[in-house]
Simulated scan of single mutants.
Amino acid sequence: MVASAVLALSAAGCGGKKASTGGDGGGDGKKSLKVGLAYDVGGRGDKSFNDAAYAGLQKVQSDLKLDVKDIEAKEGESDNDKIQRLQLLAQSGYNPVIAVGFVYATALGKVAPKFPNTKFAIIDDNSVQQANVSDLLFAEQEGSYLVGAAAAKKSKTGNIGFIGGVETPLIKKFEAGYVAGAKKVNPSVKIQIKYISQPPDFGGFKDPAKGKTIAQGMYDQGADVVYAAAGLSGTGSLQAATSQKKWFIGVDSDQYQTASADQKPYVLTSMLKRVDTAVFNFVKDVGDNKFQKGDQRFSLKNDGVDYSKSNPSALGDLSATLDDLKQQIVSGKITPPEK
């Protein structure tokens, strides 16, 4: 269920204090990092959450000259499988280790205390409070508020949709922000809300067929804009939007960039969740001996979330409205709800 990547990263140029490994002609030695990363449900290639993490690793590779190696996980794995993977990475000298997604919380809670000298990061969870764990958290409701406003403003029917992959507290944050943003610009807007699966079934993040069927149903019932916070399943929702010539809003990554030529005209915007920034900054901070334990929060204020402007012909003058709302959120005048 969870695809994993192990990245053997040997970096010179991480900056800061470096461990000496012999002469490199530069006066202070190179620091070697071996970084392990485990993807969330859907794995790499979901064009969404996991691919945002991968983009961060690509930046690590290009900017810090580090090598990347992927290891796939198996279908339907348990917490014990995750424990064994994180343990294996730590035992093999991978440090730091990044767990992409809250599904790793239980496993990390058991593994991190056993390896106090290994630095860990987990995305979307802060239940693991350990001296060697950094919790990378996002204000998803803020970015979702902006795309909700975009949806309601763009809609000609006054009817929009929200598709969540799995009904968890995390995805409810996306929903809450989206609904609030939509109602800000159109208090009478109708919002269709559906989730693909319920915990403990996390298959809703990797079921494009169901994502397509649900979006199709929303369009059939009058929606002309649908926001899919559903990982890989969102690719199916985009297919439905394209066939119906309706609007689609992507999530996490800029899904206009990975859409096919026939799909691009229907991608209104995407809610950007900068997992790439979080991954890169974490690795760089470890290399710079600037590791921080506990909550690290990414919001509109520090460019941790945003909305994409890759399709200006679709957004039109909406950008001015959204940028104004963005500034009101940053200044504290508007506080999007989390639930």
Rank of each mutant, 00 (worst) to 15 (best):
G148I: 02
G143H: 05
S233W: 01
V147W: 07
G165W: 00
D201P: 01
I191V: 15
K206W: 01
N132F: 09
K153E: 12
E175I: 00
F138N: 11
S253K: 12
K210H: 01
A223Y: 05
A241F: 09
D254I: 12
N132E: 10
L136K: 10
P169T: 03
M218R: 05
K154T: 15
A131Y: 06
I193G: 00
A230W: 00
A259Y: 11
A261L: 12
I163Q: 01
Q216A: 14
S188D: 14
A215K: 01
D135T: 13
G203S: 14
V166L: 00
S260Q: 15
I171W: 01
V179A: 07
A152M: 05
K154A: 14
G143E: 04
A261N: 14
E142P: 05
Q244R: 15
G236Y: 09
I160E: 06
G211P: 07
K246C: 08
P187S: 13
Y145S: 08
L238M: 13
I160C: 06
I171C: 03
V189K: 05
Q255I: 10
G250S: 12
I191M: 09
L232H: 00
K153P: 01
K194L: 02
Y178M: 03
K190H: 13
A259L: 09
K210Q: 12
S260R: 14
Q141N: 15
V147K: 07
K206M: 08
F162S: 03
K153A: 14
A229H: 02
I196M: 04
G181C: 09
